[in-house]
Amino acid sequence: MIIFLYSLMCFIFGTTFLAIKVGIDAGFPPFLSAGIRFLLAGLLIFIYFYSKNRSVLSLLFRKELVAAGFSLTFITFACLYWAEQYVTSGIAAILSATGPMLIIILQSVFLKKGISKISLAGILIGFIGVMLLFSPGLTIEVNGQWIIGCGIILIGEIGYAAGTIYSSKLISSLPSQSPIVLNAIQMIYGGVFLLIIAFIAKENIPASSKEGLLAIIYLTVAGSMIGHTIYYYLVAKTNAFLPSTWLYVSPIIALTIGRFYYHEYFHPIMLIGAFFIIASLILINFTKVADYVTQKKIVSVK
Rank of each mutant, 00 (worst) to 15 (best):
I123A: 00
I152Q: 08
L120S: 15
L80G: 05
M101G: 15
I128W: 02
A83V: 07
A161E: 12
I140Y: 13
W146F: 15
A78N: 06
G126E: 00
K112P: 04
G126Q: 01
S108G: 14
N143S: 10
A83H: 04
L138A: 10
I115T: 14
E157L: 12
T139E: 09
I115Q: 13
F74E: 11
G156K: 00
F74S: 09
I153N: 09
G129M: 04
M101W: 08
S89E: 12
C150T: 05
G149Q: 02
I165C: 02
L154C: 06
L138F: 15
T73F: 13
K117W: 14
F127D: 01
Q85V: 08
A162D: 05
K117Q: 15
G129H: 02
I153L: 06
G149P: 06
L120H: 12
Y86D: 05
C79V: 04
N143K: 07
I158F: 10
C79W: 02
S96P: 10
P136M: 05
I147H: 00
S89N: 14
V109Q: 03
G114R: 15
V87C: 10
I148Q: 12
K113I: 01
L138T: 09
V87Q: 06
G156N: 04
Y160L: 15
I105Q: 11
Y86I: 03
I125G: 13
L154Y: 05
T164F: 07
K113H: 08
F134R: 00
T139Q: 11
G126L: 02
S135C: 09
S89C: 11
I140D: 14
I104D: 01
I123M: 01
I158P: 04
A93G: 14
L72N: 10
A162Q: 03
F110N: 08
V109N: 03
I152C: 09
Y81H: 12
E84D: 10
I123W: 01
Y81M: 12
Y86M: 09
Q145A: 05
L154D: 08
T73D: 09
L72W: 04
G151A: 08
F134C: 03
V109S: 06
G99E: 01
G90Q: 09
Y81I: 07
I165T: 08
A161M: 10
G90R: 07
I91D: 02
Q107Y: 05
G126I: 02
C150I: 04
F77S: 05
K112D: 04
A92P: 00
I128G: 03
G99W: 00
I91T: 09
G129E: 01
W146N: 13
G156F: 02
I128K: 01
S135I: 15
A121L: 13
W82D: 02
L72R: 03
E84W: 08
A97L: 03
I125L: 15
P136A: 07
I165D: 01
G151L: 08
S135A: 14
L154N: 05
C150R: 05
A121P: 05
I75D: 03
S116W: 04
S116G: 13
A121S: 11
F110W: 10
I103Y: 07
E141N: 11
Y160N: 14
W146R: 08
L102E: 09
W146E: 12
L154I: 11
A93S: 15
I165G: 02
T164R: 06
Y81S: 11
L132E: 04
C150L: 04
